[in-house]
Amino acid sequence: MSNAGLTIFDGAVLRSIDLNLQELEHGVTGAQLLEISESKVSESLLGLSLPPHLKKAAISKVSEGDDVNFRRTDFNKEQASEKFGVFVSTVADALRDSPIVVSILDGSNLKLFLEDEDDFAMLAENLFTDLDEEDKGKLPKSEIRKALVHMGVEMGVPSFSEFPILDEIIKKHNADGDEELGQAQFAELLQPVLQEIADVLHEKPITIVQNVEIFTGSRLRKILADENKLKSLVEKTIVEESKEKEKQGQADLIKTLIIKNGKELGLPQLSSDNEPVAFLYETVFSQLNNREKDSSEEGLMNALKDILRKFEELLETTPVYSATDL
């Protein structure tokens, strides 16, 4: 599924892969099978290389923890297809629980800017103003590089490290010199640079993993099924609360428990800078005021379950995104 220019790989597309390796005429070694498996999964994910942790998990599952001997083992066609199915299902299950969010840059975003004169003029003006920190009204040609960095993936421009050809495009258009340009001249130079970037991406799109985590409620469901974990969190909260000089009511206790243990519960970190997340918490916490007050441990446990189920329901229908460190 996708949203706001992002594509989310949640494992669904992998479940439609044909698990019968029809192209195999003879048996294969485990090493060959792993190469085939990784290649087919990557192809289904629009060419995205499997993140190391997913690859490691799939290899461990399919080899039953003995990677070395598995690679040396010979498998017939039927055995290979069965092992391939295990590899695919392992990756699909992992993506279901922790989807990967990516941007697919194919030049389309840049072309939208370039095809509308007003949009491009505003873009060029904003970039020039942001880069002209001293308000001189002039910028050297080399600032085109900073303009591209400033635009970034959000506007369809990959980074120099992920798209080295950017350096060649800048040199080709003589956009790396010290000659100073006014705003109009800067825009005239920026336009063909962006046009060529769009053309190159159109011919060969690139996929970039975003430092964004999507919360769908799947991890929360597992937590709700773990009675011992929830009980442990409740007991810890009660102990901590007993040390406070001022006792908290049930609603405040639940809020404190969830905010402090959000990550452990599979919830996004509450932040006023992330409006959808802030709205999610506000919506769910408002339900606490309607509950019958029960200060016992059992009452606190029941209240926590009810509130977490509300989080799960909302995340199921409207997933939220949160920045993360990958």
Results as ranks from 00 to 15, higher is better:
M1G: 15
N3C: 10
T7E: 11
T7K: 14
D10N: 15
D10Y: 07
A12F: 03
R15G: 02
D18S: 06
D18I: 05
L19F: 10
N20M: 12
H26C: 04
V28E: 04
T29A: 00
G30T: 00
L33C: 00
E35Y: 11
I36M: 01
S37Q: 09
S39G: 08
L45C: 03
L46Q: 10
L46G: 03
P51T: 07
K56D: 15
A57H: 03
K61R: 11
D66N: 07
V68E: 13
F70I: 06
R71G: 03
Q79L: 01
K83Y: 00
S89I: 06
S89N: 15
T90R: 12
R96Y: 15
S98K: 12
S98M: 12
V101Q: 02
V101D: 03
S108P: 12
N109C: 13
K111E: 12
L112F: 08
L114Y: 12
M122W: 12
A124P: 01
E125H: 08
E125P: 00
L127M: 13
E133G: 07
E133Q: 13
E133D: 12
G137P: 01
G137C: 02
K138C: 07
L139Q: 03
I144Y: 01
K146G: 03
A147Q: 01
V149A: 06
M155G: 04
M155E: 05
G156E: 01
V157I: 08
V157T: 02
P158R: 01
F160G: 00
S161I: 12
F163G: 04
F163M: 04
E168I: 11
E168H: 09
K172N: 08
H173L: 07
N174E: 11
N174G: 13
G177L: 02
E179P: 14
E180Y: 10
L181P: 10
Q183H: 14
A187H: 02
E188S: 15
V193G: 02
I197A: 06
K204I: 01
I206M: 10
I208D: 03
N211Q: 13
E213H: 14
F215Y: 15
F215N: 08
T216P: 11
S218L: 13
K222V: 02
D226L: 02
E227V: 01
E227H: 14
L230Q: 00
S232A: 13
L233H: 04
V234C: 07
K236H: 09
K236N: 14
T237I: 09
I238K: 09
V239G: 06
E241V: 08
K243H: 08
K255G: 05
K260Q: 14
K260H: 11
N261P: 02
K263F: 08
K263G: 05
E264N: 11
L270F: 14
L270V: 02
S271D: 05
S272D: 06
D273Y: 05
V277T: 08
V277E: 03
V277P: 13
A278W: 07
L280K: 07
L280Y: 10
V284A: 12
S286L: 11
L288M: 09
N289P: 14
R291W: 09
K293H: 15
S296A: 10
S296G: 05
E297L: 08
N302K: 12
A303F: 12
L308C: 06
R309P: 08
P319A: 13
V320M: 04
V320D: 00
D325E: 11
D325W: 15
